[in-house]
């Protein structure tokens, strides 16, 4: 295979197809930068989806729980080593992902005789102002995209993910409350889960509201909040749907 490069390319393409296929049933996760902090949300069916990484950093993801756990642990190790050997202020998402997680994921993905990571991730870094917030989308093959503030979605398939992100961004325009953000995220989650179209006739709001409420039965809404105004160094807290009036 090594002597025949086209076979390696084919193997990589097969691998990409295999990962996407395995991730098909994954429940999407969301992040939104708001004036008071960053909200992360996921709906889990028995596995955790939203995690604290460091003082101002959090992660949300979908995929195989064991793979999610490996990446989460690697990120926590790196962040705490960085904070201890330098300072907590030196822990940054750009370095954490650019020099740590992304190369690790790419290397793993291209080693075709090892099992690939079955994950799609969102990472968030709280800034001093919404414009300084950093949201990051990290894919199973190590490719990543940064964004200052705004909205980000991680879903199992690229096209619905992009459509959902556009729709959610439009829906949350001008909305600053985290309860509004959570409500819209849950509606988007329902539309994605039900494979509804975001470009044609989107179901009316009453249907969307009733839809996610009925679909989450037996599942758990996980909400993480990075609090910009927090007094403690660790800004992450978990919220319940009831706390947001949902």
């Amino acid at each position: 295979m090594i002597e025949e490069p086209y076979r390696w390319l084919e193997a990589i393409a097969n691998r990409r197809e295999y990962v996407r296929d395995q991730l098909k049933g994954g429940s999407p996760v969301f992040a939104a930068s708001l004036p008071d902090g960053i909200l992360l949300l996921g709906v889990g069916g028995g596995q955790s989806k939203v995690f604290e990484l460091f003082d101002r950093h959090a992660l949300a993801g979908l995929g195989h729980p064991a793979d999610l756990e490996k990446i989460r642990q690697a990120a926590i190790d790196s962040a705490h080593l960085e904070a201890f050997t330098r300072a907590p202020e030196d822990v940054s998402l750009r370095r954490l992902v650019g020099f740590g997680l992304s190369p690790q994921l790419k290397l793993n993905f291209e080693q075709i005789f090892s099992a690939p990571y079955l994950i799609e991730l969102l990472l968030a870094e709280l800034g001093t102002a919404p414009g300084n917030d950093l949201l990051l989308r990290l894919h199973f093959d190590g490719i990543f995209q940064f964004q200052s503030g705004g909205i980000m979605v991680a879903a199992s398939q690229p096209e619905p993910e992009a459509a959902a992100r556009t729709w959610l961004t439009q829906g949350l325009a001008g909305k600053e409350k985290r309860s509004d953000a959570a409500e819209w995220m849950l509606q988007t989650w329902w539309l994605l889960s039900e494979k509804k179209s975001f470009s044609e006739a989107v179901p009316p709001e009453t249907e969307r509201r009733a839809g996610w409420r009925s679909a989450i039965e037996g599942k758990m809404i996980e909400i993480g909040w990075l609090d910009r105004g927090g007094q403690r160094t660790a800004r992450f807290e978990t919220l319940t749907a009831a706390q947001l009036g949902l």
Binding site: L53, F54, H80, A234
Partner: peptide, 16 residues
Amino acid sequence: ARVLQTSFEYYRRSQL
């Protein structure tokens, strides 16, 4: 104090 601060938070975050 610095070792303990990092150790306690590391445990909490990694072990949930």
